[in-house]
Structures are given as C-alpha cells and as structure tokens.
C-alpha cells in the first residue's frame, strides 16, 4: 500500500459537478484507468480516496489535490498517464506526488475572480465602491453553522479571513484576486465575499492554489 497525491484541475462546464459527484467521477476514472486502488479491510471494503479541500459547486480550479492509496508501486508517471486518459471533459490530471503535508495543514487558498458587467462604467463604479469597503475592513457575512445537531446562523468577519487582495476594473469587468482562509479550522467561500460586496450574478471564480500556515504552497 502506497499513499499518493494526485493534482488535478477543473474547468469549463465541469465546474457544475458538485463535490460529491466529483468524488464519484474521480473514483470511476481511477477504476477505468486500471490504477490498483487499495481497499479498506472490514465488512464493507471501500477504496481509500479523499479530497483534502472540497471545491464548491460552480467554481473552477487550477490545482486541486486528491489523496489515494494504491496497492502496488505503479510509477507516478504511469499513474498520471493512465488517469489523464480516463478523465471526462473539464477534469485534467496534472501531477502525481508523495503527500508531504496533511489536510489539517491547509490554511489559506488563492482565488482569481472575474466579474462581468454590462458596461465599463458600471464595472468601474462597482470596483471603486468594493475597493473602499475592502479597505475599510469590517466586512461580515451570515453563515449557516451547526451547534450540535441544530443549524444556527452566525455572523462571520470576512475581513479577518481575508489576508491579501488585488482589485481592478478592466473594460466592462472587474478582476479580483484574493487570499482567503481555507481548511478545517476556518474556511471562507469566496462567494460569500462577493455577496457581501454586492457583486452581480455571473462572477467566475477560480481557485488557483492552496497554502500552508507559513504562506508557502501546500504540498
């Protein structure tokens, strides 16, 4: 049994595949690829295949991790070639590495966001307003959380979860790059930030990378 980390990307209409559906699609792709998955032992054996940080529905990503355990020492290059050939449109296999850090070490994620407007003036006006609000701090959002089994709405501070951003208008669109807290302790979906900034529908969100607590790429 050998643990491997497979890096993959999601683009185009594949962004409408939910997290759970992505897990199923990846499991089937690995099976089609003939990659010998290691199965858990016990009464209901299942393959060991996990996603350290789920990607929300409707968002693209340049580089996502998937951890799995395989039975033999199939070389990394062979795993990559086989999986790449078995993936459906929009999902691509990029690299196979040995896992270095654990899922708990994910601390932040970078996002690239494209917000289209009907006209350049509207893009400029929104960008100016959003820029002021980002600079002022104190942005909040309502988030549904759990308290035991009960669902409770709580207010979270977006500004505290946001560590860097760049915002500019460009023709009839606004471009926002932002680093947000991510992982099991604190996590901020960029859609919440866009909502707090009154961004119009139709923004394109792409996750560009994951970072550890030191700000270095999560590996």
């Amino acid at each position: 049994m050998r643990p491997v980390r497979i890096w993959w990307s999601k683009a185009g209409r594949a962004k409408y595949i939910s997290h759970l559906d992505t897990v199923r699609a990846m499991t089937r792709a690995v099976r089609r690829a003939g990659i010998p998955l290691w199965y858990t032992e016990g009464f209901h054996p299942h393959p060991y295949l996990t996603f350290p940080l789920p990607l929300p529905l409707g968002q693209e990503s340049l580089r996502e991790p998937m951890d799995l355990r395989i039975e033999t020492d199939l070389p990394d290059g062979e795993i990559l070639t086989r999986l790449a050939a078995a993936l459906p449109e929009g999902l691509a296999a990029l690299e196979v590495t040995a896992p270095v850090l654990g899922p708990g070490d994910i601390a932040a994620a970078d996002y690239r966001i494209y917000i289209p407007f009907p006209a350049p003036e509207e893009a400029a006006a929104w960008t100016a307003r959003a820029g002021e609000r980002l600079a002022a701090g104190g942005l909040t959002a309502a988030k549904i959380g759990k308290q035991g089994h009960r669902k409770v709405e709580k207010e979270i501070s977006l500004s505290a979860l946001l560590s860097a951003y760049r915002l500019a208008a460009e023709g009839s669109a606004a471009r926002l790059t932002v680093r947000l807290a991510a992982g099991s302790e604190q996590n901020c979906n960029p859609a919440l930030l866009l909502e707090a900034l009154d961004a119009p529908c139709g923004a394109e969100i792409c996750r560009t990378g994951l970072l550890d607590k030191t700000g270095a790429p999560w590996r």
Partner: peptide, 18 residues
C-alpha cells in the same frame, strides 16, 4: 449558460459527461 448558476442540480443541463 447564465441560467446554470441559478438552478438546482445544474449538472442536469450541462452535458459533457464521459
């Protein structure tokens, strides 16, 4: 395409399956 983000289960309408 702009409708996809506004409905339940957009995967019903996107195509592109293996």
């Amino acid at each position: 395409e702009p409708l996809l983000a506004l409905v339940q289960k957009p995967g019903r309408y996107t195509g592109g399956e293996l």
